Simulated scan of single mutants.
Amino acid sequence: MLVKLFNVYRVLAFVVGVLLAFCALVAAPLKYLTEEGSSLQQFGESASIMWLFHGWIFMVYVVVAFLLARRARWSVGFTLLMLVAGLVPLLIFWVEHRVTQKVRAENPELVEPSPA
């Protein structure tokens, strides 16, 4: 069960991270910081629908991250960091890396042996 949760977590973290980065660093600035009526502003307006997708996928991410943290018996602080990471652009990529290190350190059987 831990392996499945871990794999689903990694995929969701990547998707949530990419969506949040796109929305916060591309769509929002184009929508609000470009000339009204310009093609860039219109693109930013259209691309803002991605916030909706981020929100729905983030809710699934929160559930999976919580289940993974509870199954692995991680601290409340680390669990909260995992949950909040999807709200701060680019932070989720660092947190996902830390989660991967932690899972592999605590579960050596999950680490694939290197080919000789």
Results as ranks from 00 to 15, higher is better:
residue 73 R to M: 03
residue 101 Q to D: 15
residue 103 V to A: 14
residue 62 V to F: 15
residue 25 L to P: 02
residue 97 H to A: 13
residue 10 R to V: 09
residue 82 M to R: 04
residue 42 Q to P: 01
residue 112 E to M: 11
residue 12 L to G: 02
residue 13 A to L: 03
residue 12 L to F: 01
residue 66 F to T: 07
residue 43 F to D: 05
residue 67 L to M: 11
residue 75 S to C: 02
residue 12 L to Y: 07
residue 75 S to G: 04
residue 9 Y to S: 04
residue 70 R to C: 02
residue 102 K to C: 04
residue 27 A to M: 01
residue 17 G to A: 05
residue 77 G to C: 05
residue 51 W to M: 01
residue 57 I to R: 01
residue 88 V to S: 11
residue 90 L to C: 12
residue 103 V to F: 13
residue 97 H to C: 09
residue 34 T to D: 02
residue 51 W to V: 00
residue 56 W to H: 10
residue 5 L to V: 07
residue 14 F to M: 11
residue 70 R to F: 08
residue 50 M to Y: 13
residue 26 V to E: 10
residue 58 F to L: 15
residue 41 Q to G: 12
residue 64 V to K: 07
residue 103 V to R: 05
residue 30 L to R: 07
residue 83 L to C: 04
residue 53 F to I: 05
residue 53 F to E: 01
residue 73 R to P: 03
residue 66 F to I: 10
residue 23 C to G: 13
residue 75 S to W: 07
residue 111 V to I: 13
residue 32 Y to P: 05
residue 72 A to T: 08
residue 25 L to M: 15
residue 38 S to K: 02
residue 74 W to D: 00
residue 1 M to T: 11
residue 34 T to N: 04
residue 87 L to K: 06
residue 14 F to N: 08
residue 91 L to R: 00
residue 94 W to K: 08
residue 97 H to L: 14
residue 36 E to F: 12
residue 24 A to F: 12
residue 37 G to Y: 02
residue 104 R to M: 14
residue 60 V to L: 12
residue 15 V to G: 09
residue 3 V to H: 03
residue 16 V to A: 03
residue 72 A to Q: 15
residue 88 V to P: 13
residue 64 V to I: 14
residue 91 L to H: 05
residue 100 T to V: 13
residue 71 R to G: 06
residue 82 M to E: 03
residue 81 L to E: 00
residue 58 F to W: 14
residue 72 A to W: 02
residue 57 I to T: 05
residue 42 Q to M: 14
residue 58 F to K: 09
residue 31 K to H: 11
residue 30 L to G: 06
residue 94 W to C: 11
residue 95 V to A: 09
residue 80 L to T: 01
residue 42 Q to I: 14
residue 95 V to Q: 04
residue 86 G to W: 00
residue 74 W to Y: 05
residue 113 P to K: 12
residue 46 S to G: 13
residue 17 G to K: 07
residue 32 Y to W: 14
residue 49 I to F: 10
residue 33 L to Q: 11
residue 53 F to Y: 12
residue 30 L to V: 06
residue 39 S to Y: 14
residue 101 Q to W: 06
residue 75 S to A: 02
residue 82 M to D: 02
residue 61 Y to P: 08
residue 50 M to A: 14
residue 114 S to G: 10
residue 81 L to C: 09
residue 53 F to Q: 05
residue 13 A to N: 05
residue 59 M to N: 13
residue 38 S to D: 08
